[in-house]
């Protein structure tokens, strides 16, 4: 029998297997479902930007909050703040949607999901990707994903705004179904924001001596527990924000008009 040695060329070859994968389970389900759900979300968000029924007192559709243009109804403005004057004629939702969208786009969970579902890099573990070259996030443009923590700072503000909207709804119509939908959505959005990997790093993840920073260590422990559910919170909050937004718009359009709406 021929012996191979450590330096022989034969030792440098992988097993030549032609199949792209030998997996027998339904590995394609995850990328396919991801693709369908995210595409639906993108289509909805695009429609929501241009839809003008984003406010019906006391409800404010989350996709258009805060409303920063003078074209917004006065009640819908956050503390009356409207820095964009009459010269601004585009949909007001366009002004702020980039912040939560950027937060989700650069989120570590979403990156995993869309790299698998949209870019097939890889579509599933142990399944060959179709690209001949790969540099990942080491170069432009994907190196820009490192900006995630700045979107996290913005997402904290957006989460606070949604919480204020929920409180305003609670004051205006405490028994309204929409109020409670907005409250649940605000809680989920804020939990998702706090569970972020950048948040975990900022609270104390960057430290090497937890024992010297007991308060930050406690905060890190709390965020770490949330962080373990980051994927679930990302998906649930995506559905909740879409559902809450659609609900408010349907009430504003008069399509939903039962007494406790």
């Amino acid at each position: 029998m021929t012996q191979t040695t450590a330096d022989s060329p034969a030792r440098r070859q992988r097993a030549q297997i032609k199949e792209r994968t030998l997996r027998t389970d339904q590995w394609w389900r995850y990328p396919l479902i991801t693709f369908i759900i995210f595409t639906a979300f993108l289509v909805y968000a695009t429609w929501a930007i241009f839809d003008t029924s984003y406010f019906v007192s006391p409800y404010h559709a989350p996709f258009a909050s805060p409303c920063l243009a003078t074209s917004c109804p006065p009640e819908s403005r956050l503390f009356g703040f409207a820095p964009f004057g009459d010269w601004y004629t585009l949909p007001p939702g366009l002004l702020i949607l980039g912040l939560p969208a950027g937060f989700r786009f650069t989120c570590y969970y979403y990156r995993k999901a869309y790299y698998r579902g949209f870019w097939l890099s890889p579509p599933a573990c142990g399944v060959n990707e179709p690209h001949s070259k790969y540099t990942g996030e080491s170069r432009f443009p994907l190196i820009l994903q490192n900006v995630h923590r700045y979107f996290f700072y913005a997402a904290i503000v957006v989460g606070l705004v949604l919480a204020i909207d929920a409180v305003k709804a609670l004051i205006g119509n405490p028994t309204g179904l929409g109020t409670w939908i907005l409250i649940v959505n605000a809680v989920l959005i804020n939990l998702y924001t706090l569970s972020c990997h950048s948040c975990r790093h900022i609270t104390a993840g960057r430290l090497n001596h937890f024992s010297k920073h007991p308060v930050r260590y406690k905060a890190w422990g709390f965020v770490s527990k949330l962080n373990a559910k980051h994927q679930e919170l990302a998906l649930i909050s995506m559905f909740s924000v879409m559902g809450a937004d659609l609900y408010v718009r349907l009430v504003a359009k008069g399509i939903i008009n039962f007494p406790f709406a």
Partner: peptide, 22 residues
């Protein structure tokens, strides 16, 4: 490290269940 696009296959296959990615 920049090559890693955090698709978590390493975590999925780890027999010691180490949360490598997270």
């Amino acid at each position: 490290l920049g090559y890693c696009n955090i698709t978590k296959c390493c975590t999925e296959v780890c027999p010691e269940h180490i949360k490598i990615t997270d």
